[in-house]
């Protein structure tokens, strides 16, 4: 299939990057990361939202942008308003916020949502008068009106999910570009969000899948991918072998505290009954002694 053809060389690279990643413990920056752009226009509102997030999550180390009052760490966190920082592409900035950097800069992938991370980028950019945001195709502008098809390919070894979004209105599958796809996993109570990703020219969005999500006895998880806007939406769900193998041990099936008598811990039953027997036995013995006295006196 087309998708696989495109992704094969990518996975060679991925293999490499995983082994490098294991060495440095931090994900390496790729070109596609660098070129990543926000899916919305930076506005005053997004900057204000970004400021709040920044103050909550970043200020303790990076200080107030433009004031150079960052913490004295080694390496220094640096001032986000500085030229160095502003030289980063939006994609790079987003990447570091998402995945962290070096030993000190923490990763925020699981702490702040994707759009909030872009809000922070918007806020940091507000200190750069020369900044012009790259042309974005807004997710809301993506035409999702045709006969949509969303297909997931799962790469178990690489822990990667690739989504392909196409429109086959005229009988030919045409990729849909710049659409946001959300991936989540079905859990007991609701869906666990895995991430969002934009489709590229080929209608492909790629997700790195966490390695530590518990699955069922076979390690299967139910993936749910979603794309859509106000006018149209599509979602698919599919079982994928991406989870940890979890064989649930049912507490009530084994002997344990809080179980019915038939399944109470043996040591407990034995202790209880033997203590009871011992005390009962001693009492019986004393009673027999009394009987002996009585019989002695009958004669």
């Amino acid at each position: 299939m087309r998708v696989k053809n495109i992704t094969t060389p990518f996975f060679l690279l991925a293999f490499l990057s995983i082994s490098v990643g294991l060495m440095s413990q931090v994900k390496p920056l790729t070109d596609s990361d660098k070129q990543k752009v926000a899916a919305f226009k930076f506005t005053n509102e997004s900057q204000t939202r970004g400021m709040q997030q920044y103050n909550n999550n970043c200020k303790s180390c990076h200080g107030d942008p433009g004031k150079k009052n960052y913490s004295n760490l080694d390496p220094i966190p640096g001032d986000p308003a500085s030229a160095e920082y502003q030289a980063l592409t939006d994609g790079e900035m987003f990447f570091y916020i998402t995945n962290g950097k070096g030993q000190l800069m923490p990763m925020f992938a699981n702490a702040i949502s994707e759009s909030q991370r872009w809000d922070i980028v918007a806020y940091i950019r507000s200190f750069n008068p020369n900044y012009i945001q790259a042309e974005v195709q807004l997710a809301s502008d993506v035409n999702l009106s045709g006969a949509l098809r969303l297909k997931l390919d799962v790469f178990k070894e690489e822990k990667r999910v690739v989504a392909l979004l196409t429109d086959s209105t005229d009988g030919v599958q045409k990729p849909i570009k710049s659409a946001t796809i959300k991936l989540s996993v079905k859990r007991q109570f609701g869906n666990l969000n895995i991430g969002e990703s934009q489709t590229n020219e080929l209608g492909i969005a790629i997700f790195d899948f966490p390695v530590d999500i518990p699955g069922n006895e076979e390690g299967l998880l139910e993936l749910i991918a979603f794309a859509g806007n106000e006018s149209k939406e599509i979602s698919v769900s599919q079982l994928a072998p991406l989870g940890l193998t979890v064989v649930p041990t049912k507490l009530l099936e084994q002997r344990s505290w809080f179980n019915i008598n038939k399944k109470a811990p043996l040591w407990l039953i034995i202790s209880y009954l033997s203590a009871l027997a011992a005390v009962g036995g001693i009492l019986l013995y004393v009673l027999l002694q009394l009987k002996k006295i009585k019989e002695m006196n009958k004669e």
Partner: peptide, 9 residues
């Protein structure tokens, strides 16, 4: 119990 106070008792 018909106690007689013997030593055995």
């Amino acid at each position: 119990l018909g106690w007689k106070g013997t030593e055995r008792e």
